[in-house]
């Protein structure tokens, strides 16, 4: 089902949590709401779920206005960070809860409920554990039960609030892959909240980057990573280096020296240059940035070098192959092959 968030504003006791947010979620896609804490991503998710009501604006499920509907009427599946399983029920009872509480007229017969719950248990690869209680399962297993429970009601939209936030790194990676598989198999429109950019980039079809109650950028992982539209997105997604520069004669200048980067579209004056550490090329030309090496450390297959550039104590990071001879030098010249200029703040 499509979900349309239209000009939604949300205030908590006069404190604004979301300012005029609009977002179109396509049917069947897996979209991540990504942002630092306090960016409003969880609030947006809870508004879609109906766990909070918007101060202004509307939320549409398909063509119907869902804004005035209660949580129960919206038919959504919600997965909480801390599982929120019913600990006095077995795993099977947890999964069938959503079907058992339906009014008699729409409730499937008991045998059918059991069959569907067992099927879901199989889907989340926990067959044989139906008689256990939640406290007898590991964190990863509990979260899978929570997902099965949410899927049992055949929700129109599946909403996940930091679903892997409470799990350790290894389990998180496994579950991430597994969630993607489940999504591809069941095809639910899925929205998940995360503050982990790696998770968002790896898992989602599109991501929606949020900051301070506003949407900064919406796009595919490639778009957002390669063409960030704001300094915040550039800094938040992936590693980045930032440097204050001056634009003059359609060129970028650092510390009184043109560095060989054209800037025809940027107005003359101060600006900020952003680039990724892995996009820096070492060059021995005059038109380059030169810096004094202040630190150097090995990160996996590369060496990350910290340089002081431009004489004002500004530091940037660039990546070199770990066995590159330049790693021994105290002074390096380089130029980014991809970059982005933003007006000075």
């Amino acid at each position: 089902m499509e979900v349309r968030v239209a000009n939604v504003r949300k205030e908590f006791d006069r404190f604004p949590a979301l300012h005029d947010v609009s977002l179109d979620i396509r049917s069947g896609e897996l979209i991540a709401l990504l942002g630092p804490s306090g960016s409003g991503k969880t609030t947006l998710l809870r508004l879609i779920a109906g766990l909070e009501m918007p101060t202004a604006g509307k939320i549409f499920f398909g063509d119907t206005d869902a804004s005035e509907k209660t949580v129960q009427e919206r038919n959504i599946g919600f997965v909480f960070q801390h599982y929120a399983l019913f600990r006095h029920m077995t795993i099977l009872e947890n999964i069938s809860f959503g079907l058992k509480v339906r009014p008699r007229s729409t409730r499937p017969p008991a045998g059918e409920i059991r069959r569907r719950a067992m099927e879901l248990l199989d889907l989340v690869q926990l067959s044989g554990l139906e008689k256990r209680y939640p406290n007898q399962l590991s964190g990863g297993q509990r979260q899978r039960v929570a997902l099965a429970r949410a899927l049992a009601i055949e929700p129109g939209v599946l909403l996940l609030d930091e679903p892997f936030g409470a799990l350790d790194a290894q389990v998180r990676r496994e579950l991430r892959k597994w969630l993607r598989e489940i999504h591809d198999r069941t095809g639910h429109t899925t929205v998940f909240v995360t503050h982990d950019q790696e998770e968002a980039l790896e898992l989602s079809d599109r991501l929606c980057v949020m900051s301070q109650g506003k949407i900064e950028q919406v796009g595919s992982p490639d778009e957002v990573y390669d063409h960030p539209t704001s300094p915040f997105v550039f800094g938040f997604i992936g590693d980045s280096s930032e440097l204050p520069v001056t634009i003059e004669n359609g060129e970028v200048w650092v510390g009184g020296r043109a560095i060989g980067i054209p800037a025809h579209d940027t107005p003359t004056g101060p600006a900020r240059l952003y680039f990724r550490p892995h996009d820096a090329d070492l060059i021995e030309a005059d038109a380059s940035m030169a810096g004094v090496v202040t630190a150097s450390r090995r990160v996996g297959g590369t060496r990350r070098v910290e340089l002081e550039v431009g004489g004002d104590g500004h530091k940037v990071e660039i990546d070199l192959p770990f066995d590159h001879p330049a790693g021994e030098k105290t002074r390096l010249s380089f130029r980014p092959k991809r970059w982005k200029l933003f007006p000075a703040a």
Binding site: I76, G98, V101, A150
Partner: peptide
């Protein structure tokens, strides 16, 4: 936890 109540509500209870 309040979340358990919310979970119950999202499941239609």
């Amino acid at each position: 936890s309040h979340e358990v109540e919310e979970a119950s509500a999202t499941l239609g209870a």
